[in-house]
Design a protein around this nucleic acid. Structure first.
Lengths: 172, 172
DNA sequence: CATGTCTATGTTATAGTATAACATTGTGAA
DNA sequence: TTCACAATGTTATACTATAACATAGACATG
């Protein structure tokens, strides 16, 4: 593949790629939060896991396991897929990151360590992924399921379209 | 992988696997409907495409592209991945089938050829996939997006859990 | 401190999912 | 008929993910 993902990025790659969205401060803060959440729960927030979360936090986009892996190995960690997948598994299992199913890629969570059923907005122009929480969405989904006698254990809600920033770019 | 999917099927495979959920009658009817929808829209409902849809209609579960491919080639069609992927692409693009992102697998659509934003209920015990339509769900999702200035073009809603039948089995 | 146990990391190998690119065939309009 | 285009078929390869086993750390217990 010249890849679904890279063709998605053709437009405005300059916008999405260069300026990191969060300042280091925020990232360090998020990492510290994750660390204490882990301590509380008796989980081990090891160096690889921390590094993977840091990499995710540095991006506004979702990143694939192999891109993570590449950056990990540049930093001296192992260079084989399980190294990335295991940390990603840990982070997603414990609510520090999410997998975006439509992209086979991952994002940091904005409310780390909490139980929640988020919805994601994926911009097909700038590739940004935004996490949203909607009580009513989950309520309605729950009702729809209940009506069929279905017990939801995990929900995936992903909307693809155009984000506000890109919509505005188009109007100009 | 001994595979996520095959381990998912360990329980009650007997229930889900043997009896096809729809009688041939219904399947033939669905195929006929698809055929006329295609005619209306000037689309070509070719033999491979028909066969793929038929295979999907025969299952209550989602099936992977390679499983489809295998059955296709047994029936005399080509045996290489694009053969399956192209038909699946056609069927999903035009609303005759859906991809279940969490499973990397496909299901026939229950309201073929219509524009709609379905939600799916995936049973982790019997692997059944049920399509549901909820106006309010889409409404709420749309509102949540609108609140962020996001324009939804396509939505993916997939709930994983336990279906009514399996819940009842557990209670017995 | 020694030791056994459990978790995490690292590696090799391989399975599973998907598409690019090009050759060939079929279909329909001019 | 012939041209243009869509569909099918094939080869080759890219991308995503996990199994299985070896090694190394963490940590509780005697």
């Amino acid at each position: 593949m010249t890849s679904k993902r890279s063709h998605r990025s053709n437009r405005s790659g300059d916008i999405a790629d260069s300026p990191k969205w969060s300042c280091d401060n925020t990232i360090q803060q998020a990492l510290a939060t994750a660390e204490s959440r882990c301590r509380e729960k008796g989980l081990r927030f090891t160096p690889v896991r921390r590094k993977v979360l840091e990499l995710l936090l540095q991006e506004k986009k979702a990143i694939g396991a192999y891109e993570i892996l590449e950056r990990l190995s540049e930093t001296g960690f192992g260079s084989q897929p399980p190294v990335a997948y295991r940390s990603l598994g840990f982070l997603t299992r414990h609510g520090f990151a999410h997998k975006i199913e439509r992209l086979n890629a991952f994002v940091a969570c904005i409310c780390p360590g909490e139980k929640h059923a988020p919805a994601f907005m994926i911009c097909r122009l700038c590739d940004s992924v935004t996490e949203a929480h909607s009580f009513s969405l989950n309520h309605v989904l729950g009702s729809a399921a209940e009506a069929k006698g279905f017990q939801i254990e995990h929900s995936t809600v992903e909307a693809e379209g155009i984000c506000m920033t890109c919509v505005e770019q188009l109007r100009i």
